[in-house]
Deep mutational scan, measured.
Amino acid sequence: MDSLVVLVLCLSCLLLLSLWRQSSGRGKLPPGPTPLPVIGNILQIGIKDISKSLTNLSKVYGPVFTLYFGLKPIVVLHGYEAVKEALIDLGEEFSGRGIFPLAERANRGFGIVFSNGKKWKEIRRFSLMTLRNFGMGKRSIEDRVQEEARCLVEELRKTKASPCDPTFILGCAPCNVICSIIFHKRFDYKDQQFLNLMEKLNENIKILSSPWIQICNNFSPIIDYFPGTHNKLLKNVAFMKSYILEKVKEHQESMDMNNPQDFIDCFLMKMEKEKHNQPSEFTIESLENTAVDLFGAGTETTSTTLRYALLLLLKHPEVTAKVQEEIERVIGRNRSPCMQDRSHMPYTDAVVHEVQRYIDLLPTSLPHAVTCDIKFRNYLIPKGTTILISLTSVLHDNKEFPNPEMFDPHHFLDEGGNFKKSKYFMPFSAGKRICVGEALAGMELFLFLTSILQNFNLKSLVDPKNLDTTPVVNGFASVPPFYQLCFIPV
Rank of each mutant, 00 (worst) to 15 (best):
M1I: 00
S3V: 15
V5T: 12
V5F: 14
L7N: 09
L7A: 13
L9E: 14
C10L: 12
L11V: 14
C13A: 14
C13V: 15
L14P: 15
L14T: 14
W20F: 12
R21M: 13
Q22R: 14
S23N: 14
S23F: 15
S24G: 13
R26G: 12
L29V: 03
P31T: 06
P31C: 06
P33C: 01
P35V: 05
P37V: 05
I45R: 02
G46F: 10
G46W: 07
I47D: 10
I47S: 15
I47K: 13
K52S: 12
S53N: 14
S53K: 15
L54T: 07
L54K: 03
T55A: 14
S58I: 04
K59T: 12
G62N: 02
P63S: 13
Y68H: 08
F69E: 04
K72N: 11
K72H: 12
I74V: 15
G79S: 09
E81C: 08
K84D: 06
E85Y: 08
D89N: 11
D89C: 10
D89Y: 08
D89S: 10
L90M: 14
L90T: 14
F94I: 08
F94T: 12
F94H: 03
S95L: 05
I99T: 14
F100V: 15
P101Q: 11
P101N: 13
N107L: 07
G111S: 11
I112N: 07
I112C: 15
G117I: 03
K118V: 09
K119R: 14
K119T: 11
K119L: 05
E122P: 14
I123G: 15
I123K: 05
R124H: 08
R125H: 09
F126I: 11
S127A: 09
S127I: 08
M129T: 13
M129L: 12
L131Y: 05
L131T: 07
F134Q: 12
G135M: 09
M136E: 09
K138R: 13
K138Q: 14
K138V: 11
R139L: 12
I141M: 12
I141E: 01
I141Q: 01
E142N: 02
E142K: 01
V145Y: 00
Q146L: 10
Q146T: 09
A149E: 00
A149D: 00
A149H: 00
L156G: 00
L156Y: 00
T159H: 05
T159M: 09
K160I: 03
K160C: 10
A161L: 04
A161P: 02
S162T: 12
P163T: 05
P163M: 05
D165C: 01
D165M: 00
I169C: 02
L170S: 02
C175E: 01
C175S: 04
F183W: 07
D191H: 03
Q192S: 12
Q193V: 13
N196G: 10
L197C: 01
M198I: 06
M198E: 03
E199Q: 11
E199M: 10
E199D: 10
N202A: 11
E203L: 03
I207R: 05
Q214M: 11
I215W: 14
C216I: 14
C216A: 15
N218C: 15
F219W: 11
P221C: 11
P221L: 08
P221M: 12
I223S: 14
D224A: 13
F226S: 05
P227R: 08
P227Y: 10
H230L: 09
H230S: 11
K235I: 03
N236S: 03
S242Y: 05
Y243N: 04
I244G: 02
E246G: 08
E246I: 04
K247C: 07
K247P: 02
E250L: 06
Q252V: 08
S254D: 12
M257F: 14
M257L: 13
N258A: 12
N259D: 11
N259Y: 08
F263A: 05
L268G: 03
K273Q: 14
K273C: 08
H276T: 11
N277Q: 11
Q278Y: 10
T283V: 08
E285C: 05
E288P: 06
N289T: 15
A291K: 01
V292I: 13
D293G: 04
G296A: 14
G298V: 00
T299Y: 09
E300H: 15
T302L: 07
T302C: 06
T305C: 04
L306R: 00
Y308Q: 03
P317C: 05
T320Y: 04
A321P: 05
A321F: 09
V323I: 14
E326K: 01
I327F: 01
V330T: 12
N334T: 14
N334D: 14
P337L: 05
P337F: 02
Q340T: 12
D341G: 01
R342Q: 10
R342A: 09
S343E: 11
T348S: 08
T348L: 06
A350F: 01
V351A: 07
V355E: 01
Y358N: 03
Y358H: 07
I359Q: 08
L361P: 02
L362M: 08
P363W: 00
S365Q: 06
L366I: 11
V370S: 13
T371N: 13
C372P: 00
I374P: 02
R377P: 04
R377Y: 05
N378S: 09
Y379I: 05
K383S: 08
K383D: 04
L388W: 15
I389T: 11
I389H: 03
S393F: 00
S393G: 14
K399W: 08
K399S: 13
K399Q: 12
F401N: 03
F401C: 04
P402T: 13
N403V: 09
N403F: 07
N403C: 10
P404I: 03
D408P: 00
P409N: 02
H411C: 02
E415P: 09
E415M: 08
E415F: 05
N418G: 11
F419I: 08
F419A: 05
K421P: 14
K423I: 07
K423R: 14
Y424V: 06
M426S: 07
F428Y: 10
S429Q: 03
K432S: 08
K432F: 05
R433F: 00
I434S: 15
M443I: 14
L445R: 03
F446D: 00
L447F: 05
L447I: 15
L447G: 02
T450A: 13
K459F: 05
K459V: 10
S460F: 00
L461N: 12
D463A: 08
N466A: 14
D468L: 07
D468T: 10
T469I: 14
G475M: 07
F476N: 05
A477V: 12
V479L: 15
L485T: 04
L485Y: 00
C486S: 14
F487M: 01
P489A: 03
P489I: 00
